[in-house]
Simulated scan of single mutants.
Amino acid sequence: MVAVPELAHPARDEIQLSSVLFALSDPDRREVVRQLLDGPLDAANCFASDPSMPKSTKSHLMKVLREAGIIRNEPHGRNRRLTLRRADLDSRFPGLIDAIFTAHEPPD
């Protein structure tokens, strides 16, 4: 059996505001984070706004969020588990996540 590889995640003190804001500027990435506000999800069950989105696009969304320090993407059996790094984000940028996700977004 092939092990699911570990991925690199920035340490709490390496999370940069500009990277977080860039990652959250995309509506599909914000939707992933919105889903994770309720708790961890298996990557296979976490859908962006378009469930027919190609796997490669979905993987890129997760990579941007992970590299920005917003989510953890860790092995979970043969799958991957996504977790919002809420404590790290709240420590670095108090109130940011609440401000972003309680703000009213205008309709498209």
Rank of each mutant, 00 (worst) to 15 (best):
D26P: 04
D26M: 06
D26W: 01
P27R: 09
P27Y: 00
P27I: 07
P27A: 10
D28R: 04
D28E: 05
R29D: 06
E31H: 15
E31V: 03
E31S: 13
E31A: 13
V32C: 11
V32M: 13
V32Q: 09
V32R: 09
V32P: 08
V32K: 05
V33P: 09
V33I: 12
R34E: 13
Q35I: 10
Q35T: 12
Q35N: 14
Q35A: 15
L36Y: 03
L37K: 03
L37H: 04
L37T: 05
D38P: 03
D38K: 12
G39D: 01
G39E: 04
P40K: 08
P40M: 10
P40G: 07
L41Y: 06
L41Q: 10
D42I: 11
D42P: 08
D42N: 14
A44E: 15
A44K: 15
N45D: 15
N45K: 14
N45M: 13
N45Y: 08
N45H: 14
N45A: 15
C46G: 00
C46I: 04
C46H: 03
F47M: 08
F47K: 05
A48L: 03
A48P: 07
A48I: 00
A48S: 14
A48W: 01
A48V: 08
S49T: 07
S49D: 00
S49M: 09
D50R: 13
P51R: 02
P51V: 03
S52N: 10
S52P: 02
S52L: 12
S52R: 12
M53N: 04
M53H: 02
P54I: 03
P54K: 10
P54E: 07
P54T: 07
P54D: 07
P54N: 05
P54W: 03
P54G: 07
K55Q: 13
K55M: 10
K55L: 12
S56W: 10
K58V: 11
K58D: 03
S59Y: 05
S59E: 13
H60W: 11
L61Y: 10
M62R: 10
M62E: 01
K63R: 12
K63M: 05
V64D: 03
V64G: 02
L65Y: 04
L65I: 09
L65G: 09
R66L: 11
E67A: 09
E67L: 12
E67R: 12
E67M: 11
E67Q: 14
E67Y: 03
A68C: 01
G69D: 08
G69H: 10
G69I: 10
I70F: 05
I70G: 06
I70Y: 01
I70E: 06
I71R: 09
I71G: 04
I71D: 04
I71Q: 02
I71F: 03
R72P: 04
R72H: 12
R72A: 15
N73W: 04
N73D: 15
E74R: 15
E74W: 01
P75F: 07
P75C: 06
P75T: 06
P75Q: 03
P75H: 04
H76D: 15
H76I: 01
H76P: 01
G77W: 02
G77L: 06
